[in-house]
């Protein structure tokens, strides 16, 4: 049991307590709604979760160094944005991967694009969490509104890079 799980349950039970204080019927409705939502959300989630693990097995060794170096410029930023979107897993997987890429010679602005692509497009988070809970229509609007933004972040990083001399290698 991590701290996060305990925190969610403390807050959730607190909110349920407030519902019950309003009236037992409101509390019952909250629990019933949660049950219905779980029933709708869980099947898609359970099928999507293995995808991250499979994708992680498919990442070829050495691709970041070869394609995403500091001199790869716009093409590198574009590749990094797309690759970031395909990068699986939560922060405990993504940030250590990025550190590995940086140490192996990937460029900092390419890595800014990679993290932004992972956070914004994050195909896997979208399929495993956003789709079951918020539905396909929301995802279409969100992706249309944001698909070009990782590129923008990478280009901004390229411009700002001279101001951050400590970035290149720790």
């Amino acid at each position: 049991m991590s701290f996060g799980v305990i925190a969610i349950w403390v807050v959730a039970l607190g909110a349920l307590g407030l519902c019950l204080r309003r009236s037992p019927a409101v509390g019952r409705r909250a629990v019933a709604d949660a049950g219905t939502a779980l029933w709708r959300v869980l099947p898609v989630m359970l099928m999507a979760l293995p995808m991250a693990a499979f994708l992680a097995e498919l990442i070829p060794a050495g691709w970041a160094e070869r394609w995403l170096g500091p001199d790869s410029g716009f093409i590198g930023i574009l590749l990094a944005s797309v690759a970031g979107g395909a990068m699986p897993g939560g922060p405990f997987v993504a940030f250590p991967l990025v550190l590995g890429f940086l140490k192996a010679g990937a460029g900092p602005s390419q890595m800014v694009a990679l993290i932004s692509g992972w956070a914004i497009l994050g195909l896997h988070r979208t399929l495993a969490w956003e789709l079951p809970i918020l539905g396909g229509r929301f995802i279409v609007v969100r992706l249309l509104a944001s698909f070009s933004l990782p590129l923008l972040a990478g280009l901004a990083a390229e411009l700002l890079l001279p101001l951050f001399p400590g970035v290149a290698l720790r």
Binding site: G4, C19, R22, A30, L38, L49
Partner: peptide
């Protein structure tokens, strides 16, 4: 994946309960 499911299932149920309760309030 199995480890991940065991880790996240308690949070999913808690999260959905939180959402449902807040929507009543």
């Amino acid at each position: 994946t199995w480890d991940l499911i065991l880790t996240v299932l308690p949070s999913i149920i808690g999260g959905l309960l939180l959402s449902a309760a807040l929507r009543q309030l």
